[in-house]
């Protein structure tokens, strides 16, 4: 009975938080993001070379010269049965960037899974382009399983030594899933990230899911020590506050991030660990 109650709670919150009122149930609204980015205003563009973020911005593989892997785990809205995990690995081969990622979201009744293949290439010195080919799988226990292919892309331009402009477009092939032909989210993001001082990085991003009003995101990252990094951020519409920290030991990083849903009074806590062999 307790498990059933929690399932109802999950579905209720899913509708309230992820699916704005008046719309159909939307699958794959909760995209995995790195713990560092979650703490940094839940920004989509890859802010500090975290490998998990190639799921959102494949062009970052080549920009950050990634070689390594990472994993995240979170428990959305503090619901025990609900969890999200993601694993990513990326490498460079002959000036091309490649990556493979997998993620799951849900509980033992409802689950969303993604398998993502990433490719990236730089065009001249300042521009990096990337694409993700995604296989979406939606599974409901005792009901069935559905699949859909997706295509996403991203572009990162290095304006100067301190500032980057990043645009991502998710599901540009207009994918639909299941017998009810549910449209998967089509999302555009565009933003800037800049290092003002060696210890201070700021970022802002506009995120637009075509079904909803847009959201503006801000993040501030402070690095008081070489091994320690603090982040805070804000997401508008609806308002969400984010915070977290990252500990870097050689090429390995351990991260914690949290996001506070002001309207619900609930939190999502996320942990992440990763290694980037090219990280300095």
């Amino acid at each position: 009975m307790r498990q059933l109650n929690n399932s109802y709670k999950f579905i209720l919150i899913y509708f309230l938080v992820l699916i704005p009122i008046g719309l159909l149930f939307g699958a794959f609204e909760s995209y995995p993001t790195s713990t560092a980015n979650l703490a940094f205003g839940k920004i989509n563009m890859n802010c500090k070379g975290n490998i998990i973020d190639i799921i959102n911005e494949p062009s970052s593989i080549i920009h950050f010269n990634m070689r390594g892997g990472g994993v995240i785990w979170n428990r959305p809205f503090q619901i025990n049965e609900l969890q999200q995990t993601a694993f990513t690995s990326a490498f460079i081969y002959k000036n091309w960037g490649f990556g493979v990622s997998a993620s799951t979201f849900g509980n033992n009744i409802y689950s969303e899974s993604m398998l993502v293949l990433s490719v990236a290439k730089s065009v001249k010195a300042r521009l990096s382009l990337g694409a993700n080919i995604i296989l979406y799988q939606l599974k409901i226990t005792d009901y069935g399983t559905a699949h859909a292919p997706g295509l996403s892309a991203s572009m990162r331009y290095n304006i100067n030594d301190n500032w980057d402009w990043v645009t991502t477009v998710r599901n540009i092939n207009y994918p639909k899933i299941g017998s009810s032909i549910d449209e998967l989210p089509q999302v555009v993001t565009t933003g800037f990230i800049g290092t003002l001082y060696e210890i201070l990085t700021i970022a802002t991003e506009w995120e637009q899911d075509l079904e909803y009003k847009g959201a503006l995101k801000f993040g501030i990252m402070v690095k008081p020590l070489k091994q320690l990094l603090f982040s805070v951020g804000y997401v508008s519409n609806p308002g969400q506050l984010t915070a977290g920290l990252s500990i870097n030991i050689n090429k390995i990083y351990f991260e914690y991030g949290t996001i506070a849903y002001n309207d619900l009074g609930l939190f999502t806590h996320q942990l992440g660990i990763g290694v980037n062999l090219d990280r300095h």
Partner: peptide, 21 residues
């Protein structure tokens, strides 16, 4: 309100990105 945010961000970017010529 979002437009005010966007304006502030753009002003910040304009200050942040140094002109070259």
């Amino acid at each position: 309100m979002a437009y005010l945010h966007i304006s502030l961000v753009l002003v910040l970017i304009l200050i942040g990105i140094k002109p070259i010529n």
